[in-house]
């Protein structure tokens, strides 16, 4: 395998192809990225630091992190349960549910926002009932979590479901013949097998949630120090001519989601 790869390296077409790809990558991705880093460096670390630690920016970052974490915690349970039900049981409407799981990937995020406002907003029946109980969802922090739940719904389901479908039932069956209860089987046999895929789904959801903008902008209410998430803050600073403020928070967000992505993939590698 490696010898054929080495042989191919000498091919002129191969080199052309590689440099073509790298150029494209440069124009679309690498140059803009380094432009941002350069701009941040030229602004100076103290300026960046003061922009990040200003209470409004800090609150926005913390809000993004905490809503993303809450969403992931909920999504891990509901996603695994959904994958389980889809993989193991037959019930009427299963085909429809299976197809609609991908809906959040297909729907534009701003449309997601509109949908949620239509369903839970103050003009909807459900919204009226919810605020009657004193727990309005739209324009509150719970609304942000709701939007993130919608947007990230497929991640855990779609990473757990194939694993569950290809799981060798022999182990579960042998555990069952040894008299283990269903719950014990799930906890001791199935869950360990699913765990890596759950973690990878969770990692993807988390980094997607940190950056989510279109749906959150519709449902968050955008109140500083209250429901303004980091991407909304960045947008506000861009519009308000404060590039450095936007940059500073962007860098923090970028770092957080990169770290979570890398951590998950390293962890997955170690698990083999």
């Amino acid at each position: 395998m490696s010898s054929t790869v080495d042989q191919r390296r000498t091919s002129i077409y191969g080199k052309l192809l590689r440099w073509g790809c790298l150029l494209y990558l440069g124009v679309v991705l690498i140059f803009p990225l380094s432009g941002v880093v350069l701009r941040a460096v030229s602004a100076g670390p103290s300026r960046i630091w003061s922009e990040v630690t200003n209470p409004f920016a800090w609150h926005a970052i913390m809000l993004s992190l905490s809503t993303a974490i809450v969403m992931v915690l909920i999504s891990v349970f509901t996603g695994t349960a959904t994958a389980w039900v889809l993989a193991r049981y037959e019930f009427p409407g299963k085909g429809l549910v299976n197809a609609l799981v991908d809906l959040p990937f297909a729907v534009p995020t701003i449309v997601t926002g509109l949908m949620l406002v239509a369903m839970f907003g103050p003009t909807s029946t459900l919204g009226v009932v919810l605020s009657g109980f004193g727990t309005p969802v739209i324009y509150e922090q719970s609304g942000i979590v709701l939007a993130l739940l919608f947007v990230c719904f497929p991640f855990v389901v779609r990473s757990v479901q194939p694993v569950l479908e290809n799981l060798d039932p022999a182990e579960e069956e042998s555990a069952a013949t040894m008299g283990a209860s269903r719950w014990t089987i799930f906890r001791r046999v199935t869950l360990p097998a699913l765990f890596p895929s759950i973690v990878s789904g969770a990692g993807l959801s988390f980094s997607r949630a940190l950056g989510e903008f279109g749906s959150v902008v519709m449902v968050a209410g955008n109140r500083p120090m209250s429901t303004k998430t980091a991407p909304l803050y960045v947008y506000g600073e861009v519009e308000g001519f404060n590039m450095e403020g936007a940059l500073a928070v962007s860098l923090v967000l970028l770092t957080c989601s990169l770290v979570s992505l890398i951590a998950v993939s390293k962890w997955a590698e170690r698990q083999g």
Binding site: P32, L33, G211, P231, V238, L247, L254, L258
Partner: peptide, 21 residues
């Protein structure tokens, strides 16, 4: 590794990058 970056970047920040460059 870089190829996965757009998954991690908020679209707003992607826009900001293009404006800056």
């Amino acid at each position: 590794g870089l190829l996965d970056l757009p998954f991690a970047v908020s679209p707003v920040i992607a826009g900001l990058m293009l404006i800056i460059l």
